[in-house]
Design a protein around this nucleic acid. Structure first.
Lengths: 199, 199
DNA sequence: GTCTATAACGAGATAGAC
DNA sequence: GTCTATCTCGTTATAGAC
C-alpha cells in the first residue's frame, strides 16, 4: 500500500544483490509497475533514495539488536544470534546493505558515506558492549579491548558473507561464523557437530 | 610502453577503488590520453577487459604466494606475509580486486564470475596447505580441518579490508589481521605492542 | 594502433497534464 | 500520486579513414 515503502523494499534488495551502481530507477519502476517519474516523486534523486535506504536499514537493524539484548540470554548466545542476522540475509542471496555499500564507497554521495560509517559504528559499539559485559560476567574470555573484538567480528562476518555469496553457499558463512565465535568467546572446545571434525 | 598493460593498470585500479560498474571506458581513455575506440582495439568489450584483469591479477598473486613459500620461513611467518599482501593493497586505498568483484558478482558476465571463484580457490588451497604444513611441523595449532581455517582467514581479511577502507584507516585492518593470525595460529599470548593493550 | 564520427541505448532527472 | 513526454548526458560498441 505505502508506495514509498514498496520502493524502498525493491531498491534495498537491488542494492544488496547488485550494488548501488548495479541497478537503475527503470529496474525498480518495472518491478513495481509504475513509471520512473513516479519514483522521482517519492525520492527526488538516487542519492536521496540511497540515504533513505541506509536510514531504514540502520533503524531496523537497531531494533533487531535491541530484541537480542532483551531476550536476556547470555553474551555468547547474543553473539550467536547476531551472526544469525547475517545468515538470514545471506539465505536471501543478499549481502549486508552497508557491506555492499562499503564496496561502492568511493562512488557514493557524501551523505551515504556517512550513513554507512554510522551503521558500522552502531554495530561496533553494540558488539563492544556485549563483549565487555560478557567478559565481566565471565561468559566470555578474549584478549585485548572489547572494541577490537567487536571490529574483528564485524569485518570477518562481512567478509565471510561476501565470499560465501559468490559461491552461492550459505554453509561457508555459517561454518566460518561458528568458528569465529568459538575463537572470540574463549571457548577451548567447540560445541556441536564440528567437534567431530576436529583432529 | 605496452598500451595493453597500461590499460590494465588503470582499469585494475578503477575496479579496485570503484567497482566494475563504477567506471567506464571514458575514464580509462581520459587518464591515458587515448580514445575509447583505441581501448576497444585492445579489449573488444568491457567483459573481455574484466576477464583479462582477473587473469593477470591471479597470476601476479600466485607469483607472490610462490615467493612467500620459497622464502622458506615458518608457517606463522608465511601467514603474516600473506596478510601483508592485503595490507599493501589497502595502503593504496584499494580493495582486493576479487573481493570487490565479489560484491559486483551477480552483475558480472559468466567468465568473470568463474575467474573470481578461481582466485578464491587458489587462495584457499594455498592457505590450506600452509595451515596443514604448519600443524604437521608444530609451528601452528588450530582446531578443525586446514581448509576451514583457510576459508575463515580469507573471508575475514577480505571483510576487514572492506570495512577499513570505508574509514580510510589501514590500521583497522592490520589490527584485525594481527589478532586473527594470533587466534588462528594457536598463539596463547600475543606478541608486540598489542600485548600492553590487554586487560 | 590510433583516430573521428556516430550509432544505439540506458541513465538520472524535469515539465506539466490528469 | 501517477502519468506521458522529453531532455541531457553517459554508456558500450562499431565503421572506416589515417
Amino acid at each position: 500500500m505505502d508506495t514509498a515503502q514498496r520502493i524502498l523494499d525493491v531498491a534495498e534488495r537491488l542494492v544488496q544483490t547488485q550494488g548501488f551502481n548495479g541497478f537503475s530507477y527503470a529496474d525498480i519502476a518495472a518491478e513495481l509497475g509504475i513509471t520512473k517519474a513516479s519514483l522521482h516523486y517519492h525520492f527526488a534523486t538516487k542519492a536521496a533514495l540511497g540515504s533513505a535506504l541506509i536510514t531504514r536499514y540502520g533503524a531496523e537493524f537497531g531494533r533487531a539488536l535491541e530484541e537480542i539484548d532483551q531476550s536476556a540470554v547470555d553474551a555468547r548466545e547474543k553473539l550467536r544470534r547476531y551472526a544469525g542476522l547475517y545468515a538470514d540475509v545471506l539465505r536471501q542471496h543478499r549481502m549486508c546493505l552497508c557491506g555492499m555499500l562499503a564496496a561502492d564507497y568511493t562512488t557514493l554521495p557524501a551523505a551515504m558515506r556517512s550513513g554507512v560509517k554510522e551503521f558500522f559504528d552502531l554495530n561496533e559499539s553494540w558488539l563492544a558492549r556485549i563483549f565487555d559485559e560478557g567478559r565481566k560476567q565471565g561468559a566470555l574470555r578474549f584478549r585485548g579491548p572489547p572494541l577490537d573484538s567487536a571490529r574483528l567480528l564485524l569485518g570477518s562476518l562481512e567478509g565471510a558473507m561476501l565470499v560465501a555469496r559468490s559461491y552461492g553457499d550459505p554453509e561457508r558463512f555459517t561454518s566460518a561464523a561458528q568458528r569465529l565465535l568459538a575463537e572470540l568467546s574463549g571457548r577451548r572446545k567447540l560445541a556441536g557437530r564440528t567437534d567431530r571434525a576436529q583432529r
